[in-house]
Computed example of a mutant assay.
Amino acid sequence: MIQGSLVALVTPMLASGEVDFSCLERLLDWYVEQGSNGIVAVGTTGESSTLDEQEHCEVIRRCVEHLDGRLPLIAGTGANSTREAIALTRCARQVGADACLLVTPYYNKPTQEGLYRHYRAIAEAVDMPQILYNVPGRTACDMLPETVGRLAPIENIIGIKEATGDLNRVTRLRELCGSDFALFSGDDASSREFLLLGGDGVISVTANVAPRQMSQMVAAAIASCGTEAEALDAPLAELHQRLFIEANPIPVKWALAEMGLIPEGIRLPLTWLSEDARPTVREALLAAGLV
């Protein structure tokens, strides 16, 4: 089972908006060195919604090739079209990704039955490990634990990234899905509590800028060392909040640029972090000892 601190990777871009593949490779090396447990490429934080299909597949391919087995690579392949999600998932399998992450279909608001059939269709079409992704704050679609429970017996659906921040769901999902079904937090602010309740890992925005600290905190929480995990999490608390002061990944890309790790590039309709918000994010980086 993939577990631990997984970096919800940004997609570095030049000022022109083109993907900066050299920078991408440097970031991957850094996360390996810093002790991260895995990489999640071209998810929400990776600006998947503004990459075309060719770019999407190329980022996955480059990540797989450069990591060369040093860390597991989970590819974001979700879409609000079942056919498109199948096509992206096939691409991820072809280039060697270890698993895929499939966000609930956004904008079109499917029913719980529609969600079940969507994910079942992808699982039946592509034989690779698949992780569900529930983030209703962005998709306007909430996949209920009971629907996840219906999907869990499908052999290649191996887990869920639960990003509601509702800690009551951890116990319910474990009851419905069993001990072998991976539960990942998708909410940095509540991830420590999520893990102490029995979660298996976190797919983290904060881990982009504080990979070692997140890896240490997550390891302590998974080991049920609550006091140690709390102490490790405390310096990151402001980051967990302030990296969402504007829409993700705007603040985290600015923070990485401030740390000298990526160029100042983002793709419309997202824009660079506003001047007024920069002191707030900088204070959080200082509190964590990152600048």
Score class of each variant (00 low, 15 high):
G149Y: 12
S81R: 06
A99E: 02
S190C: 11
F181H: 11
T82L: 02
P105G: 11
A97H: 06
A182M: 14
T111I: 08
I154Q: 07
L167T: 10
A140N: 04
C100N: 01
M128I: 14
I158R: 15
V170E: 05
P136H: 13
V135S: 05
N168G: 15
D180G: 14
R150K: 15
N134Y: 09
E155H: 11
I86R: 04
V148M: 12
C91P: 00
I158M: 11
S185E: 04
C91G: 13
D187W: 11
R138Q: 09
L144F: 12
C91A: 12
G159H: 08
G165N: 04
V148S: 01
G149Q: 09
G137S: 11
I122A: 03
A152M: 08
I160T: 12
L115P: 05
V103P: 03
L151V: 12
G159R: 10
R83F: 08
P136N: 14
G114Q: 13
E162R: 10
L144I: 15
K109F: 11
L183I: 09
G165Y: 09
S179D: 11
R174Q: 06
S190I: 15
T164S: 14
D166Q: 15
A163K: 04
A99N: 02
M143D: 00
G96H: 02
E113K: 15
F184R: 04
D98P: 02
G137D: 01
K109M: 10
E146I: 08
E113A: 15
V103C: 04
R172E: 13
C91H: 07
F181G: 06
S190A: 13
T89F: 00
L176Y: 09
V170F: 12
D180S: 14
T171I: 09
L167G: 10
Y119G: 06
R174C: 00
S191L: 12
R172N: 05
L144W: 13
E162K: 09
N108K: 10
T104H: 05
F181D: 03
A163F: 05
A182E: 03
T111P: 11
L102M: 14
A121H: 04
T171A: 14
G114A: 13
P105N: 14
G165L: 06
P110N: 15
A87I: 10
A85M: 07
A97T: 04
M128C: 12
A92F: 01
L88M: 07
V126F: 03
R120Y: 00
D187Y: 12
Y119E: 02
V103I: 15
G186P: 02
I122E: 00
R120G: 00
F181Q: 08
Y133G: 04
L144A: 14
Y133S: 04
T89V: 00
D166A: 15
S185Q: 05
C141D: 00
A97E: 02
L115T: 12
P136R: 14
G186V: 04
G178V: 08
A99D: 02
G165H: 10
F184W: 11
E146D: 13
I160M: 13
Y106C: 12
N108Y: 07
L167E: 10
E84N: 08
M143R: 02
D188T: 09
F181S: 07
S179V: 06
A99T: 03
I160N: 09
A85C: 08
L132D: 05
V95D: 01
I157R: 07
Y106W: 15
